[in-house]
Design a protein around this nucleic acid. Structure first.
Lengths: 135, 135
DNA sequence: CCGGATCTTAGACAACGTCTAAAGAGCGAC
DNA sequence: GTCGCTCTTTAGACGTTGTCTAAGATCCGG
């Protein structure tokens, strides 16, 4: 079902178009933390004629308009996170998979920046691996 | 002056070579948070004949051996951080510059991973910008 | 000096992301 | 309906970052 994706776009000052709606429908709902090229692949499943440039342009537009957040956590891919609410991230070093950690689970105090700066965003980034039954 | 870089390499199970020592001399001392290509450029100043592949190989080797830490904080570059002691990072969104934040300055509690995982490393990543006198 | 292992090199290669010029779509004025 | 303006999309070239490969250089024990 398509909860008014077009309305969401308009609320963020984005003119809806077929491509943008198709892209938003995927990227706003996913929990895959996809890279841009992964988004491209996924959207093509429903919208075969979309070009790579459009995907990149649109993702950047969404970020600019506050619809998505960019994550730079791993090499060779910028990830896009629809979860605008704050949360932390855990990265599995073996698989590269990224998991969300609820904001309240970790307590952070004194997240003060350098003098003269202001913090606009912060998060805890954890790296680790699946615990094995035995070595 | 060259504080026994070769000895440091050997202590980490890395065979010293002219290229590796030249690279280590730069990268272990810098506070620039350089990308790999920046390392290449800097090392070439003292060691003109070093090839790009060697720089990449050597940096990856150093990371593997625990001499450096890799940071994936910004698009289009993996950064290398000689500060093996734990610390946090602050990223200036305007300039892209990265600053170290002392570990003790921020208090983090309950940095627990997902069930079944173990955390090997974590840090707080802050993003922000220089505060201006007026908007 | 010889042999084997390791290290380095140049360049090809692949992936990611940006840019450009041209075509297409939407929409109001007439 | 169609003209003209604007915004969007497109294909492909392009630049950068990083990896891979095959061949040459170096080192070290004997």
């Amino acid at each position: 079902m398509k909860p008014d994706v077009a309305a969401i776009l308009e609320k963020h000052d984005i003119q809806p178009s077929a491509q943008r709606v198709a892209l938003a429908e995927y990227v706003l709902k996913t929990t895959e933390h996809p890279s841009a090229d992964k988004v491209w692949a996924r959207v093509q499943e429903n919208f075969p004629m979309i070009s790579r440039a459009t995907v990149y342009n649109t993702l950047n537009l969404f970020v600019e308009k506050g619809l998505l957040r960019e994550l730079h956590l791993a090499p060779d891919s910028v990830l896009f996170d629809p979860n605008t609410g704050h949360h932390h991230h855990f990265i599995d070093e073996d698989t590269g998979r990224i998991y969300d950690i609820p904001w309240n689970q970790i307590e952070v105090n004194n997240a003060k920046p350098l003098p003269g700066f202001e913090v606009r965003d912060y998060q805890v980034v954890m790296r680790g691996r699946r615990r094995r039954a035995r070595g």
